[in-house]
Structures are given as C-alpha cells and as structure tokens.
Amino acid sequence: MAAMLEMIGGNGWALLGAALAVILAGCGSAYGVGVAGQAACGVVTEDPGKFAQVLILQLLPGTQGIYGLLIAFVALSRYGLLGGGGMELTVAQGLMVLAACLPIGIVGLISARHQGKTAVAAIGIVAKKPDQFGKAMLFPAMVETYAILALLISILALPTI
C-alpha cells in the first residue's frame, strides 16, 4: 500500500484530486444541463417566446461543472502544477489535496443531477405559468446551496504549503 502511494507520488495524488473535481462535477452538470435542455426544447417547440426563461433554468445545473473547474484550477496553480516549474509535494500533501477536491467532485455530481431534474419541473411551471418564473427558479436554485457549501469546503481545505 505504502509502495503504491509512493509510486504515484504527491504530485500524482494532487493531479488525481484536480481531475476528479472536474470529471465528477462536470459529469453531473452535463447530465443536469442535458435533461433540462430537453425540457427547454419541448417548451420552445410550442412557444419560442419562452426561450430566455427556459434557457436560464437550463443553465442552473451548469454551475457545478464550473465549481469543479475552479477547484481544479486553484489546486493546480497553487502548487505550481500548471505550466511547469511546480513544487514537489509529499505523498501526505498530495493526499490532502485529493481529499480537499472530493467534496466538490462528489457533491457536484449528485447536486447537478438533482438540480437538472428540478429544473425540468421548473420549466414545466414556466410552460404553463410564465408569470411565475421567479418562483419556479427558486426551486432548482435551492439545490445550488449544497454545491456552494461543498465548493467552500474544498477551497478552505486545500492545504497551504
């Protein structure tokens, strides 16, 4: 086990953390934006006038992917892994970076999927009652809370070296 940890090295674990933040949160956002996009297309097929409203709702689950990217970017740039000339992290430091990246990766994946489904339901509200757009937007926005909490923890947990 210790040999495997050493073999990958501190920088390797840090890179894995950054990759997971982007991959997991990005996959969640892709699913969420995709399913909400299908619903948005359904509404625009019948009523193109609602394009702007449903587009906003479609984009809501896209934020988790951005958070994942942000964490990965912060991690890579903080330890000089971006653009070369980086520091040599110990295995312990690398694992700490990996652990710090996991909250946004995992919570991003799950919250984006649920936000996508909630956005679909909200698009259903806008389809029937466009004047209720503000209220409709609040429901998927509530899911965002947990992605922001995970983002916060990931940023705070990234170790200062």
Partner: peptide
C-alpha cells in the same frame, strides 16, 4: 427522464 422533452412540450400544450 427520457420523457423530459415530451412532457415539457405537453405542459406548453396544456
């Protein structure tokens, strides 16, 4: 969830 498009379109038609 594959019905997302169809259901949203139905909502607009309703």
């Amino acid at each position: 969830t594959q019905y997302a498009y169809a259901v949203a379109r139905i909502r607009a038609l309703e």
